[in-house]
Design a protein around this nucleic acid. Structure first.
Lengths: 237, 237
DNA sequence: GCTTTTCATTATGAATGCAAAATGCATTAC
DNA sequence: GTAATGCATTTTGCATTCATAATGAAAAGC
């Protein structure tokens, strides 16, 4: 007796979405990931199970399952018999991740040019406009979010869900670099101009150009990010 | 009282590798993955925990942890309150995976050309020779293994561990397509010639050409794989 | 005084137990 | 005869428990 309204199989009622039932496991994975990304669980830090169990109010079983998943994602590292520790994002690793993202974004851009609809171009254009507005307002977080949204949307439009998945998981992992924080005015200005060019190539549906522009744009981003990480690591040592 | 030989911290004994202690969890993950890849757990099949527990002789806890990890890898899908099922590799998904691999391999080839040493070229050359030999012997599995080894080695030589990781995880997932099984003689011949060209570009350290060749090679592979999958799915329905 | 050893405490790895959900089957109503 | 309902069984999700390895502190040896 599921209590659900599935006994009426006639069409037209499919708006009755299956009532939301999130497993504890998924919830814990999501929350734990959030803690790591926010930096509440600092890189290099040991992650005692007990503390997290109390924090989330769950037993160790779902928490341990979640840790394994995060480990598979590369956000934590499991030390045999010594629990987990939050992985440190090294400059080298960030560099490598950006290199891969550059390749993926270039490919996505090219594919997106072949598939993008006019309505989607308008969508990107709107995001772009809002981003430029945030730039002029000097609002870094707002700018950064819209920037991400544009990149992500272009990747989505490419229409390759495997590509989208890999891209997103990389984007999650790299978010810890927080390179947007110390974006120099000069670089910020340059980034906006790069985005102008990207938008133009997209509007013109010029795949080859867009691919090149996005790869270059990512390379520049990578430099800023790696510099930030080197600074952070310098402070530590 | 760890029983280990760590009480002598003087250098020179680092050859004492930390004695192999595999957690049950890792072992189960590896074995389960193997079962899925081998096809012993057929795509679409429900995976009852109990059966696997008996099969591996472990309790449900490590098995369930392993299932979550495999789910994160995309090899199984977790159905709330109804266990797991082995994901089906659809032609569409395979197509998407090959498209991503083509991009990654192209990038890897280009990077590899910049970094490859003479000794590594010899290594690839040797693998290639053995592969061609397997081809003439009509040994498909042997050919296929060496083929994979070459691609994998080129990616490794590119020296980007993030790229290598993503590539390998894709390679694992796509292995289920078993497209090598029905390689037509014509296509097989063509594939070998493509590999000849790839080797030549690598020897010449011609990154641009290698990138193009590898991408094209992958695209052709993809066609064979997708055709195989469509046949398989046709049989089912 | 410093190192080493021993022991108590704590945390982790894995198994078991329990409640809730799903599945299959028999029965009943039409 | 068919479809729906109720019930027993099985399976899953999570909590708890148990055994073992790691950690830290006190005591013994040099």
């Amino acid at each position: 007796m599921s209590g659900n309204v599935q006994s009426a199989p006639e069409p037209g009622i499919r708006s009755t979405v299956p009532i939301r039932r999130v497993s504890l496991h998924d919830e814990v994975v999501a929350r734990l990931r959030e803690l790591v990304l926010e930096g509440q669980l600092a890189p290099g830090m040991r992650v005692p199970e007990k503390m997290l169990c109390e924090r989330f109010g769950v037993s160790r079983t779902p928490l341990r399952e979640a840790l394994k998943v995060l480990a598979a994602e590369g956000l934590v590292r499991l030390l045999p018999n010594r629990g987990a520790e939050v992985t440190r994002l090294t400059p080298k690793e960030a560099e490598e991740m950006f290199a891969v993202m550059a390749v993926l974004e270039a490919a996505a851009g090219e594919a997106a040019c072949r598939r993008i609809r006019d309505s989607e171009i308008e969508e990107i254009r709107a995001l772009h406009a809002r981003m430029v507005e945030r730039y002029h307002a000097g609002d870094r977080p707002g700018y950064f979010d819209l920037n991400q949204a544009i990149h992500r949307r272009i990747v989505e439009i490419a229409g390759n869900s495997v590509l989208t998945g890999i891209y997103n998981s990389l984007a999650v992992r790299i978010r810890r670099a927080r390179y947007a924080a110390n974006l120099s005015p000069a670089r910020w200005d340059e980034a906006v101009r790069e985005h102008e060019a990207i938008l133009a190539a997209l509007v013109a549906r010029d795949g080859a150009t867009l691919a090149r522009l996005m790869a270059d744009h990512l390379r520049h981003k990578a430099q800023a990010a790696v510099a930030t990480l080197r600074d952070e690591q310098g402070e530590l040592s």
